[in-house]
Design a protein around this nucleic acid. Structure first.
Length: 423
DNA sequence: CACCATGATTTGGA
DNA sequence: TCCAAATCATGGTG
């Protein structure tokens, strides 16, 4: 017996946590389960003993061990011993204990599995990641399938996790199989010496599997955690507001104020702005959404800013060096920096007549197209993709009533009119 | 810490 | 699907 234990030990088959039953004691228990002593000395002594034992074991040849085993099997008292063991076993009821009924599928495990599947960590190789990314995109408000930079980064990390997960899983499975066969062989071997029914072996295997699956569950759990962290860092990070860079805000503001009459960048323009600012298209959309609403709510507050950008744009246009409004898809409407007073339909025409044709906001032109004879002013902006067609608001102006009248010329100064603070 | 600025999200409408 | 509007939540500042 002791020899078996030693063999086990020598072959590294110790599983301290494994509930070993039926007399299968793989190790010298008193040595392994020694409580950690405060004083290191005795412990050191123990370790020394164990090492000594191991060394002597390795000195023993396999043949020698086999010979001993054989001797034991052939011992004349062996059948008697076997019978005694059977009797004892029957008395203690060890063999009667029925198999525990099939344990129900652990709901937590199922949850973990489902989550891993949903995240694309488990399940089919490709598509998993993108499915997760798509799901994430949908979760993020489903604005638009941009954020490709973030998502590719996310996908990379996810596939890293996936790789680790699968390799670990494989390792565990392999280890489990190896261990199971080993234990089975061992038990079969032992069954010659002591009573072990096949059922018990089966049960043992079941226990081992459960043990390993609990390890797998830990693996799944930590994988889930990793995915969650990843998600929170990459996707839910949207909650964590980062102010845009100064330069980005400048670019956006420039566009906004130079298109004040119709600050609705087209998809193309948004993309361009996004690229320039190093942000995503949806962030551009958000920014414009916020800007419009906030500008409209408190025009007075933005008057100064508007003037600043009006000057900027005007200067850069006259110098012809302005990069912001000169983009291929963005026709400069710098001249119109002050043409945001489109409120009433009354001064609409005044504005149009007094300004350069290029700068006419689509809103007005469109509404004109409806109300005027065809072939009018529309042609002047026909090439412009800047304005989304959706800007045909019923009354023709995005700001409705809230429109200040002067940002046009900085010389005029702010606060000249804007008697309205509609809000 | 209060307050404001600002990016993001939610809700409801067209 | 985009927008306006309201709201949330965080960042920055005095």
């Amino acid at each position: 017996m002791d020899e078996q234990g030693r063999l086990l030990q020598a072959r590294g088959v110790g599983m301290p946590g494994l509930p070993v039953q039926g007399g299968l004691q793989p190790l010298n228990p008193h040595q392994l389960h020694e409580p950690p002593s405060d004083n290191g000395e005795p412990r050191k002594q123990d370790i020394g003993d164990i090492l000594q034992q191991i060394m002597t074991i390795t000195d023993q040849s396999l043949d020698e061990a086999q010979a001993k085993k054989h001797a034991l099997n052939c011992h004349r008292m062996k059948p008697a011993l076997f019978n005694v063991l059977c009797e004892i076993k029957e008395k203690t009821g060890l063999s009667i204990r029925s198999n525990q009924e099939e344990e129900p599928v652990d709901p937590q495990l199922m949850r973990l599995d489902n989550m891993l599947l949903a995240e694309g960590v488990a399940g089919p190789e490709k598509g998993g990641g993108s499915a997760a990314a798509a799901a994430a995109a949908a979760a993020s408000g489903g604005v638009s399938p941009d954020n490709s930079i973030e998502h590719s980064d996310y996908r990379n990390k996810l596939s890293q996790i996936r790789q680790i997960y699968h390799s670990e899983l494989e390792k565990y499975e392999q280890a489990c199989n190896e261990f199971t066969t080993h234990v089975m062989n061992l038990l079969r071997e032992q069954s010659r010496t002591r009573p072990i029914s096949p059922k018990e072996i089966e049960r043992m295997v079941g226990i081992i599997h459960r043990k390993f699956s609990s390890i797998q569950m830990q693996l799944k759990q930590s994988t889930c955690e990793a995915v969650m962290i990843l998600r929170s860092r990459f996707l839910d990070a949207r909650r964590k507001r980062r102010n845009f860079s100064k330069q980005a805000t400048e670019v956006l503001n420039e566009y906004f104020y130079s298109h004040l009459s119709n600050p609705y960048p087209s998809e193309e323009a948004k993309e361009e702005l996004a690229k320039k600012c190093g942000i995503t298209v949806s962030q551009v959309s958000n920014w414009f959404g916020n800007k419009r609403i906030r500008y409209k709510k408190n025009i007075g507050k933005f008057q100064e800013e508007a003037n600043i950008y009006a000057v900027k744009t005007a200067v850069s246009v006259t110098q012809g060096t302005h990069s912001g409004a000169n983009s291929p898809t963005t026709p400069t409407s710098a001249g119109s920096s002050g043409s945001f007073n489109l409120s009433g339909s009354g001064d609409m025409f005044i504005g149009m007549q007094s300004l350069n044709g290029d700068s006419y906001p689509a809103t007005q032109v469109e509404s004109l197209r409806h109300s005027m004879a065809p072939g009018g002013y529309g042609d002047s902006i026909s090439g412009s993709q800047m304005y989304s067609p959706r800007e045909l608001r019923a009354n023709g102006g995005w700001q409705e009533a809230a429109t200040p009248s002067s940002v046009t010329s900085p010389t005029e100064g702010p606060g000249s009119v804007h008697s309205d603070t509609s809000n």
